[in-house]
Design a protein around this nucleic acid. Structure first.
Lengths: 239, 239
DNA sequence: GCCCACACTTGATCTGGATCAAATCGCGAT
DNA sequence: ATCGCGATTTGATCCAGATCAAGTGTGGGC
């Protein structure tokens, strides 16, 4: 489904991004109320189903988004079909590559999600007029860069077991307001997607999950719902 | 060697960053001549030998740098000693993590290099006062993010042969003003460093290099000097 | 020149994770 | 409830790359 084309023609409620603002979305949190009003007139709140491609690799997209709810995966595919997830984004992250039209990766909803869609031209103008917004997007880019480099260490140097533990730790950390030492959460990714994030095969992911289960590190309520009795123990496996 | 401590006490020629400007260094290219003059009064041009650590992982560094000459590797080390190079930077790149004091990675000169060292406080102030500079650093962050994600694909999904070819291609591309289809260059990295960049062992790197040599894809003049008769052929192996 | 240390290559063997191949498990449709 | 089908798990085997173990440069100090 092409989100860009839906900006005008498809059903959707153009709103003044009130929820973005309320949740301190990366974009809306940095704008004046006048700018917010203008942006709202040209933006679109949109529900996207799991699996919906928001931006296609190699395409020129004419819009950016803010994630309001759900999880978005950033993915790179090789000509022969091998693929690698290169980032996971959560609300209220910004999706899109400022300053470059053609995307070198695809963005796809991993879960059902809601996004707030902005026209590229308008937002580019606002970025150049609003140092606060530039700063906000710069911050997110640096945060993503830190995350990408941390994941490079995982991909290059960790074992399969450490990789799976790292992923579970990452998800638990982002899904939960980690209060207690325990955590329970739904995986936003299938086994195949986990494999593509970790540079493994689905079989290896599955085997490592059952190993962790048998060791009592995690409980698998069903294949998507995980309980971690002791996050510290999980973190230790992460190395 | 601690570069920070050298700002005042060690030998070096404090200059008004004329060369930065001339080479469109990421920082200096974005400043007014007044700012440049002020920055110059507090900056230091510095030669660093290969192996010199510019920023230590986990440390709080009080300075940023621009690379004027040479190659800098960004490295992450695990408690047990496993390590991963997470980025290579070339002149005129900026080195440092704006907005966060503690570094999650180390920056080390891979070759003899020259850097231009700025005090963090001063540059932070200039960033907040100069949208042009913010934009320049934002651009570099996005460029590094693209590179990091491209490398995640390499680490997660490419074979040892493809990894080595990718590295050679990367270096050739950055070292040479790629005129012809052929290239000749010095590797800025040892076999051990290449292994740490590719998530391999030195033995595997060595074997893949000799395989490429025997296939005529590369000539190894000596272990550090490589000739690529046909860059297209090398790129093809990259997948 | 000679020695030594260290980077690199090469060879032999091992192994973690991939691949190939069946089961199971859900779960929505009938 | 029953069927059908994709997602997941589990089992058997394979193999790319790791590990262990010698070599073979090669450059710097004397």
């Amino acid at each position: 489904m092409d989100v860009a084309r839906s900006e005008v023609s498809e059903v959707g409620i153009p709103v003044a991004c009130r929820s973005c603002q309320a949740r301190h979305g990366v974009v809306c949190g940095a704008l004046s109320s006048n700018q917010l009003k203008e942006l709202g007139r040209h933006s679109l709140r949109r529900k996207v189903d799991a699996g919906c491609e928001i931006i296609a690799q190699g395409s020129e997209s004419s819009f950016y988004s803010n994630i309001m709810r759900g999880v978005v995966k950033l993915c790179k595919v090789m000509p022969d079909g091998r693929q690698q997830i290169v980032g996971l984004q959560f609300a209220p992250d910004f999706v899109g590559r400022p300053f470059v039209r053609e995307s070198t990766l695809s963005a796809e909803a991993a879960t059902d999600a809601e996004i707030c869609v902005f026209p590229r031209n308008l937002l580019d103008r606002m970025i150049s007029e609003t140092p606060e917004l530039q700063r906000s997007l710069h911050d997110q880019a640096l945060k993503e860069l830190d995350a990408a480099r941390e994941w490079m260490l995982t991909l290059g140097r960790r074992t399969a077991e450490e990789k799976v533990a790292s992923l579970l730790y990452l998800i638990a950390t982002h899904a939960e307001p980690q209060t207690a030492t325990s955590a329970a959460f739904d995986l936003p990714l299938s086994r195949a997607e986990i494999a593509d994030f970790l540079g493994l095969t689905i079989e290896t992911v599955s085997r490592q999950m059952t190993r962790l289960r048998k060791r009592g590190i995690i409980l698998i309520e069903n294949s998507r719902h995980i309980v971690v009795p002791d996050m510290d123990e999980l973190e230790r496996i992460t190395a």
